[in-house]
Structures are given as structure tokens and as C-alpha cells.
């Protein structure tokens, strides 16, 4: 579908892109407003950023969010990668396992959140850090599996046969043949898990107790109280961080040759 874009087409595309970015830049713009509201720009100030960076409670929440994201992505990647290798070797029950695998991907967040809340309550796990961590691991596993499976599928099975014929042990087949081959898929999975975790609000909102909070939950409770330019300042920082992540993501997807959707919940 290569062709030429007419001027009208370009204007249409520019309009869509303008609409998509306008709210984000609106937030960024007013984060420098000394007036304290998102209407009527009174004067330039960096006060909101200063107050934000001086807020220790918020810094702890940011730290919590990062720790949860890194740990959950790490565990999800390990479990998911071995799961994918297992699924790949399956013959008869492959499709039903894949069906189960995708349940958490298509399920609405409210359902995941509510059902995990019941699960943790019944299991007697106190709501807080561990319940949030477990939930994030749980909803990140299927995406890791989906990222690793295609890499396994495109691997030539004779590679493994060759390794075995040449006397490699099962362990060596795994570490020297399979693992290097699927590494791009594993990295892509890890990265997806990381972004899923950083972005999640609804599931965390259900399973977080009183004492523990992540950034999304904090933004929600701040936003429910109305406009506060601290949120604007925060969104500028997060937007810059997102751009950075997109850059990394882009490089990874270019390198691994995986077609990645920019899909978030």
C-alpha cells in the first residue's frame, strides 16, 4: 500500500496527531503556571517541581513503583520464559494452555482486580507490597510467554538435534543453544512486563491496602480531589521518562525484529 499522501490527507493526520498530543502538552504547559490552576496562565514558576521533588512521601511511592515494576518483571520473565519453553514442547494440550494463557490478557482490569482481591483475602495474604507484587507478576506472565513463543517457533529444531548429536547435555542445550536464540524475545517480554507494571492502575487499586501505594494509585487519589499543579509537574517528568522508554523500546524492537504493539491496558 505505498502511495502518495494528498495535502488533505496530511492535514487530517496532523489534526489527529495534534488532538492526541494537545492534552499532554496542556498539562506540561500549566505545570509552569504560578496561578495554581489549569486556566489563565499567570506567570512562569518552577515551584510545583520544587515542591514535588521535596515531597518525601511521593519519592517513596515512586521508589515503591519502581521496585514493584523491576521485581515483577524479573519474576514474570523467569516464569514466563520457562513456561513458554514448556508450552513449545507440548503437543496435544498446547492450544488449551494457550487459551488459559490469554485469559488475563483479555480480561478487563476490574475483573482481575476484584478476583485477586478475593483470592488474597481467602489466602490470608495481607494487602500491601506482597499482594501488589504477586498481582503484577501474575498479569505480566502471559505477555512474556507471548513474546518468547514466536522466537521458539522460528528456531530450527535441527539446531537442538545437532547439539544433542554432538554430545551436549540438556543443560548445555538450554544455555548454549535455546537461551541465546530466544534472548531478544525474553528482553522484549521483560520490557513489556515492566511497562505493564508501571502503567497499571485498576488491578493495583483493588489489591493495595492502606499503607502501600503506587504512582498510578496516588495520581488517581490526587486527581479525585481536583486540580493540583503538582500532578502537572509530575506528568511532565513522566512524559519525558516515557519518551526515554519509547526510545529504548524502539531500539529493542528494531534489533529483535519483533513486531511489537504499543499495547497497554
Amino acid at each position: 500500500m505505498q502511495g502518495k499522501a494528498s495535502p488533505a490527507a496530511k492535514i487530517f493526520l496532523m489534526t489527529i496527531i495534534f488532538i492526541l498530543y494537545a492534552p499532554i502538552f496542556y498539562l506540561v504547559f500549566y505545570s509552569f503556571n504560578s496561578g495554581g490552576s489549569m486556566s489563565g496562565f499567570e506567570g512562569f514558576t518552577l515551584d510545583w517541581y520544587r515542591e514535588l521533588l521535596g515531597d518525601t512521601r511521593l519519592l517513596i511511592i515512586v521508589l515503591n513503583t519502581l521496585v514493584i515494576a523491576l521485581l515483577s518483571a524479573l519474576f514474570a520473565t523467569m516464569i514466563g520464559t520457562f513456561g513458554a519453553i514448556g508450552i513449545h514442547a507440548l503437543k496435544r494440550s498446547k492450544n488449551s494452555i494457550l487459551g488459559l494463557n490469554s485469559v488475563l490478557i483479555v480480561s478487563p482490569d476490574v475483573i482481575i482486580g476484584a478476583s485477586f482481591l478475593i483470592l488474597f483475602t481467602i489466602a490470608g495474604i495481607r494487602l500491601g507490597f506482597y499482594s501488589v507484587l504477586l498481582s503484577h507478576i501474575a498479569f505480566s506472565i502471559p505477555i512474556v510467554v507471548l513474546m518468547v513463543l514466536p522466537k521458539l517457533a522460528e528456531m530450527n529444531p535441527s539446531l537442538i538435534d545437532a547439539a544433542k548429536d554432538l554430545g551436549a547435555s540438556r543443560w548445555h542445550v538450554f544455555t548454549k543453544v535455546i537461551f541465546p536464540y530466544i534472548t531478544p524475545g525474553i528482553f522484549a517480554g521483560f520490557f513489556m512486563a515492566l511497562t505493564y507494571s508501571l502503567d497499571d492502575f485498576a488491578v493495583t487499586f483493588f489489591v493495595t491496602g492502606n499503607g502501600f501505594s503506587t504512582l498510578s494509585v496516588e495520581i488517581y487519589s490526587m486527581a479525585r480531589q481536583g486540580i493540583s499543579l503538582h500532578i502537572n509537574a509530575l506528568s511532565t517528568i513522566l512524559f519525558l521518562f516515557t519518551i526515554l522508554l519509547v526510545g529504548i523500546y524502539y531500539v529493542i524492537s528494531q534489533r529483535s525484529g519483533l513486531k511489537l504493539g504499543g499495547f497497554r491496558r
Binding site: P23, F239, T242
Partner: peptide, 10 residues
């Protein structure tokens, strides 16, 4: 990729 809540807040 920008947090959904921030966009709603905007």
C-alpha cells in the same frame, strides 16, 4: 504510553 489517569486528568 502516557498514563491513562494523567490524560483523563488533563
Amino acid at each position: 504510553w502516557v498514563n491513562l489517569l494523567l490524560k483523563a486528568y488533563a
